[in-house]
Amino acid sequence: MIGPNVVMDTSRHNDARADIPMREQGMTYAPITIEDDVWIGANVVITSGVNIGHGSIIGAGAVVVRDIPPFSVAVGVPCRVVRKRLDGE
């Protein structure tokens, strides 16, 4: 399930070199993986390279910048796991 206004961005601006303007440094791309039975709340932002594990819940307004393990409830900016769901209950 995916709520309204969710952003999934597989791109990232390169910015490592200070001697070249950022707009000329190009982009890096990495896939986003969302496993089965995931609930993503409204206004969530998911950044490139992130994996959201099976059965997880992402709270509204979260910014997901790292992987979320299966059966997790994760919220906040940056998104962090606040509890685990009980498997099968």
Rank of each mutant, 00 (worst) to 15 (best):
P4W: 06
K84D: 08
G55D: 02
V44H: 01
P31R: 14
I20D: 15
W39L: 09
D19I: 07
I40W: 03
P69C: 02
R85F: 00
R23L: 14
A30E: 14
V7A: 04
E89N: 10
Q25H: 11
S11H: 07
V75L: 11
R12S: 13
V50T: 03
I32A: 09
V44N: 08
E89M: 14
V82Q: 09
A60C: 15
R80L: 00
G55I: 08
A42Y: 10
M8T: 08
D37W: 08
A16R: 13
S56F: 02
T10Y: 06
M22W: 09
D15H: 12
D9K: 07
V44L: 09
A74Q: 01
V65F: 00
S48L: 00
G26A: 13
E35L: 09
L86W: 04
P4Q: 14
S48N: 06
G49E: 00
I52A: 08
V45W: 00
H54R: 15
P21G: 03
T47N: 11
V6N: 02
A18P: 05
I20A: 00
A62D: 03
G59I: 13
G49V: 02
V81Q: 11
L86E: 15
D67E: 11
I46M: 10
E24Y: 05
M27F: 11
E24G: 11
N51C: 05
T10L: 05
I58S: 04
T10M: 08
G41C: 07
W39S: 14
Y29A: 14
V6A: 00
I46W: 02
I34T: 11
H54M: 13
A16P: 06
P78C: 03
V65L: 05
E89W: 09
D37K: 11
